[in-house]
Write a protein that binds this DNA or RNA. Structure first.
Lengths: 172, 172
DNA sequence: GTCTATAGCTTGATAGAC
DNA sequence: GTCTATCAAGCTATAGAC
């Protein structure tokens, strides 16, 4: 917890948008600095390197995703709704002005395991002994939904993914 | 059709591997040249630019994927098998020594439409009126399978994707 | 068609003042 | 902690000989 620093927050915000829109490699540090209105040395004082900044951006995103998913689960009315709440959270994230390629951060190892374990847990009340299998199916569908958001027709990606998930849940 | 040129083929092969393993942006032209054993000017004579080389690599890949899928469909015994043949083709590609991140090329617009239309066609005999809907579900699953191959546990990605697809087909 | 050599630019990161 | 100014390295692409 660095003593509150406007520059730090602005750097994280600028980097998140630019990295997501253009890709990390295609985004020069100078561009992040310009958008944040910060000097080069300040960035290196806070994050050490471009890679350090990237890591900090991913961490921040993961934490927000985590919170959004938890909130969606809490808001759901029943077991089936809680299992499918991932898609509500995806929808929130997608509509919430987040960069169009925000989903790339989900391609990390930590996140895959998080998804798998939570989905298995949530699938329990719905599928009983078949919970692990259903969770595995839903993991594929969630991954596919993220992938679809990278392509044309991204707007309807979450809705289509949810429809597929519902078909799977109903077939249990 | 350039007069047969060993350099051209070597460049395509080297670029395919390196681009897939490291990403295009992270791969310097020099590295492609070194692996191919070719001089800079030769690359620019054939492809005009790094982007031109990248485009040529994608074209070649798409053509091979196309052929592999068609072969898998032909080899399948029945309608259901033909519909699920995408996964046979994915398996062939994945095992065939292709770079671990080969799937990135499937994130193109052209390919998305190709997938959708062919899957819809193949779903006809299996799902009748529900063909379009089933194809849409399978499109999500195929995309998810590709995404899973980018993460740890990639080896079993195709098998798990196929299992999800079978659950969907069976529920029709 | 292919080579060697190099131009010209952009990048990530640092030095030193305040 | 933040700034201005700058370095050293790496990149893509081209020139010119064979």
């Amino acid at each position: 917890m660095t003593p509150r620093s406007g520059a730090r927050e602005r750097l994280l915000g600028a980097a998140e948008t630019l990295f997501a829109d253009q890709g990390v490699a295609a985004t020069p540090v100078d561009q992040v600095l310009a958008r944040a209105g910060v000097a080069p040395a300040t960035l290196y004082a806070h994050f050490g390197s471009k890679a350090g900044l990237q890591a900090a951006v991913l961490d921040a995103r993961l934490a927000r995703w985590d919170a959004a998913w938890a909130a969606a689960v809490d808001a759901a009315p029943d077991d089936r709704g809680r299992l499918l709440a991932v898609f509500d959270a995806l929808d929130t994230f997608a509509r919430g002005g987040a960069p169009s390629r925000w989903c790339t951060f989900l391609a990390t190892a930590a996140d895959t395991e998080l998804l798998r374990s939570r989905l298995t847990e949530l699938a329990g009340p719905v599928a009983g002994d078949g919970a692990a299998e259903l969770a595995e199916h839903l993991l594929v569908v969630v991954s596919g939904t993220l992938a679809m958001r990278l392509r044309p027709g991204a707007d309807s990606a979450v809705a289509r993914g949810r429809a597929t998930a519902e078909a799977l849940v109903s077939s249990v």
